[in-house]
Design a protein around this nucleic acid. Structure first.
Length: 675
DNA sequence: ATCCCTCGAGTTCA
DNA sequence: CTCGAGGGAT
């Protein structure tokens, strides 16, 4: 377009443009169904900005362009409200929840028997929004309920919050003055993203989404708040005067019609058991939700019954917050111990005062490596927040620095291996610190355990306890020694009678019949996992050929680069390792033919399995895929053809959805391979 | 030289 | 599951 001046639009045209932008905001934030791309949305907003810049007479305070614009505040003034924002009584367990209902029924008679609304309890910041004639004029934090802080300029930057209410053609118009209550929160993914950025720029990490949301709302400069990905769910109003709304459920629908986001999981419950079921279902969904919740709020639906139930000094009798057991808990670091793995990697692990998190007692949490400890600045004696990452593995989130008394010494990686005393090394640019002593007893033991593990040689009944005993009794030093064991060797060991000893010996015997990839993997060469072992087996066809391979030949293989090639060549040139392979072969190890792909029906397809599979094991499924010429990968990318999701699928499922990868369930997978 | 996809290794608790 | 890093594509 040539740079000619556009004609001045009419007031109606500007208004139409605003409505269009508001509509898109509504679709996106309230209905969660975007109807235009971000780029299209931005284009509309930019056009409006240009018009308003050129013809200032069109500027209005409630225009979508006016989300940022107020100058930084001098601090926050206090807002005093006529109808206080009450807090809720808490219930921690089902009995307490039922007790609440008993009291309710006593207070209001049979009216309290049924008809509730159950809503997720957002873990965010409670705010009140005041709309005058449909325009947002004030926003405040809850504060003590009566007095809150005026955070209007900051709240205006939150896109999920309409600056103007919508007036549906049919249905109740909002009252002249409407105070909406709800929760400002930060989605988990956004929280993680900005924390990652903080980490990269070496800044302080935020403890959790709620604190980050609260901190964002209390920014002096609304420009800063505008950069924070905050969202909002409305759940109530200050007073229902001037409306015809007579129940909580109708209120939620009305809020939604007025253009305010309402949590779609909220549910009307006809009986107390429905509410209990809702709580339990939500607790299960909780780890998969894109935001944090800390419980369920159950309210009496009918406003008339609510009034009858009345309010105690600080909380209404007609509502209760039934909390979930915390997923994040505070505890103390008793010690930081350093473990040594089979490759000699030194891993610091925090020993914690046992604490219940998400239903289990946590007493250990990995701290990964020295950098990680440095980054989080965790010290022995600190109070720390612990959470179960991805549903399972405990993780130290951050120390509570305010509770650090005096000065605690910083953690330092030991200079010597805690097991064998050898001076440890940390190669330039690497995160791990290692003990270089190949003969370090813990490495020896680690290699033995790896050798017998599932996926490797797989000796059933030979676990880490028994390996420990065998090493201590000097019966086993290298994997080849397993094949020299007799029942009489085992019987003197703890918890070993003749029967179990015989079972172990039998299992050892059975393990002699294996496959080449498993055997190569079992050797425990650094960076040679199951996949690389398979590639090597495919290429060389025999262990002897692999043992004689040159570095050049190795690195020419697809999937093997310089690093791995050198690692393998170094390993195969060590006399002890060559002897180990000879001894194992002499002991009678034989290799089954690797099952070749029997069809090509899944050729070119890549599968990723995630979650708890109930109809088959992951190994079986992967074998089926390979048999049909397909590939089984461990992580989801845009190259993935299908993600097969079992129960409780976690981040991989999310990623699949984000990348638009097809997700199928176990049955669909079975149908696919049965054909 | 850089980015993206994978793989490998280490870890927790019931 | 998560992180770091190897390998290959661009």
């Amino acid at each position: 377009m040539p740079a000619h001046k556009p004609a001045k639009p009419s007031r109606a045209e500007v208004e139409k443009l605003r409505r269009e932008i508001e509509e898109h905001n509504y679709n996106y934030h309230v209905l969660d169904r975007p109807t235009v791309s971000d780029a299209e949305y931005d284009a509309l907003l930019r056009r409006l900005e240009e018009i308003e810049a050129k013809w200032p007479e069109f500027r209005t305070r409630d225009s979508p362009t006016q989300r940022i614009g107020a100058p930084p505040a001098e601090g926050f003034s206090v807002v005093t409200r006529a109808v206080p924002m009450l807090s809720l009584e808490n219930a921690m367990a089902e009995e307490e929840f039922r007790a609440w209902r008993e009291r309710l029924v006593r207070a209001v008679g049979s009216a309290g028997e049924g008809d509730y609304v159950a809503e997720p309890k957002m873990d965010g910041v409670a705010v009140e929004l005041v709309y005058e004639d449909g325009t947002l004029v004030q926003a405040s934090t809850r504060g003590d309920g009566v007095n809150g802080e005026d955070v209007t300029p900051n709240v205006r930057t939150i896109r999920a919050i309409p600056l103007r209410l919508m007036h549906p053609a049919k249905g109740a118009k909002p009252p002249k003055t409407l105070s909406v209550r709800g929760e400002v929160y930060m989605p988990l993914a956004d929280f993680e993203r900005i924390n990652k950025k903080q980490m990269e720029s070496g800044e302080k990490l935020y403890a959790n989404p709620r604190n980050t949301a609260a901190g964002s709302l209390k920014q002096i400069d609304p420009g800063v708040t505008a950069t924070r990905p905050l969202k909002f769910f409305a759940y109530g109003i200050g007073s229902a005067e001037g409306t015809t709304i007579r129940s909580q459920w109708d209120l939620l629908q009305a809020l939604r019609r007025w253009g305010l986001p309402v949590n779609p999981l909220s549910k009307r419950c006809q009986t107390i058991d429905d509410a209990i079921a809702f709580h339990n279902e939500l607790e299960e969904k909780r780890p998969k939700l894109p935001y944090e919740i800390d419980g369920v709020v159950v309210k009496v639906n009918d406003f008339g019954v609510q009034e009858e139930a009345g309010t105690r000094s600080r909380s209404p009798r007609w509502a209760i917050a039934w909390k979930f057991p915390p997923q994040e808990a505070r505890t103390r670091v008793l010690d930081i111990e350093v473990q040594v793995g089979r490759t000699g990697a030194l891993t610091p692990v925090a020993r914690l005062e046992p604490v219940r998190v998400g239903g289990v007692t946590v007493s250990n949490a990995t701290l990964h490596n020295a950098d990680e400890i440095e980054k989080k600045d965790v010290r022995v004696g600190d109070w720390v927040f612990v959470r179960r990452a991805g549903d399972v593995i405990p993780e130290v989130v951050a120390p509570v620095k305010e509770l650090r008394k005096g000065s605690l010494p910083k953690f330092k990686m030991p200079e010597k291996c805690p097991v064998c005393g050898t001076r440890v090394v940390r190669p330039e640019g690497e995160a791990v610190t290692r003990c270089p002593n190949f003969a370090c007893p813990i490495q020896v033991r680690g290699r033995l355990i790896h050798f017998v593990s599932r996926g490797a040689i797989d000796i059933e009944g030979l676990g880490f306890k028994l390996v420990d005993q065998l090493v201590t009794a000097a019966l086993v030093e290298t994997p080849a020694d397993f094949y020299k064991l007799t029942v009489d060797d085992l019987i003197p060991l703890e918890r070993m009678a003749e029967k179990s000893a015989q079972n172990v010996i039998d299992a050892i015997e059975r393990s002699k019949h294996t496959t080449l990839p498993r055997f190569i993997y079992a050797l425990g060469i650094r960076n040679v996992g199951e996949t690389v072992a398979e590639v090597l087996a495919e290429h060389f066809g025999s262990i002897e050929a692999l043992m004689e391979a040159s570095e050049e030949e190795l690195s020419s293989i697809h999937g093997v680069g310089e690093v791995i090639a050198q690692e393998i060549r170094t390993w195969t040139s060590v006399a002890g390792n060559r002897k180990l392979v000879r001894d194992l072969v002499k002991a009678g190890i034989t290799f089954a033919r690797a099952p070749r792909a029997t069809s090509t029906e899944l050729a070119g397809k890549t599968f990723v399995f995630t979650g708890t599979l109930t109809k088959f094991t992951r190994e079986e499924a992967e074998a089926e895929v390979k048999k049909r010429g397909g590939k089984a990968a461990s992580s989801v990318s845009k190259n993935t053809s299908y993600v097969v999701a079992g129960e409780n699928a976690g981040t991989k499922l999310e990623k699949a959805q984000k990348l638009g990868v097809e997700v199928i369930d176990e049955d669909a997978f079975l149908r696919m391979i049965r054909r």
